[in-house]
């Protein structure tokens, strides 16, 4: 299955992916209107540590512990991608407590939020990948 991978040698730590992610999931058509002056809660987060930077988003694990742990049944696997039904989610954050990679977080409106590979929004392919200026994040099939 295609997943999002980062090459930490090439990641500049510019955080553009975070903004592209927040915009893609905002449902808005205007980036400025969608993001300006707002605290964004993107589903991809750049870690900075000394001389390395890398963007991390959901690994879409083959045996996802978040899905097994969700207390409401809001998380599920669809063709390998791990999806969240925000209508079902009650925001208990049990998923946040179990994700080994820190890739699901408290979102807005009392629900958890995570990367859904832009399959659920109008983007169609990961906005973080499309907008990465240094092609440090790629969307490819590594098994």
């Amino acid at each position: 299955m295609k997943r999002v991978y980062v090459n930490e040698k090439w990641c500049l730590g510019c955080h553009l992916c975070e903004y592209n992610c927040a915009f893609a999931n905002s449902g808005d058509t205007d980036m400025v209107r969608a993001l300006k002056g707002k605290k964004i809660v993107p589903n991809i987060v750049v870690e900075e540590a000394g001389d390395i930077n890398f963007a991390v988003s959901c690994r879409h694990c083959k045996d996802p512990i978040c899905v097994k742990s969700c207390i409401s049944g809001a998380l599920s696997i669809e063709d390998g991608a791990v999806k969240i039904d925000k209508e079902k989610c009650v925001g208990c954050l049990t998923c946040v407590l179990v994700c080994p990679y820190g890739c699901i977080r408290e979102g807005e409106n009392g629900a958890a939020t995570k990367c859904e590979l832009c399959l659920e929004n109008s983007c169609g392919e990961p906005a973080c990948v499309k907008g990465c200026p240094n092609r440090a994040i790629v969307y490819e099939d590594r098994g």
């Binding site: 954050l93 998923c95 946040v96 990679y101 820190g102």
Partner: peptide
Amino acid sequence: RNERAGIYTA
């Protein structure tokens, strides 16, 4: 403080 707590759990 819940941010990325799963890393500790792991």
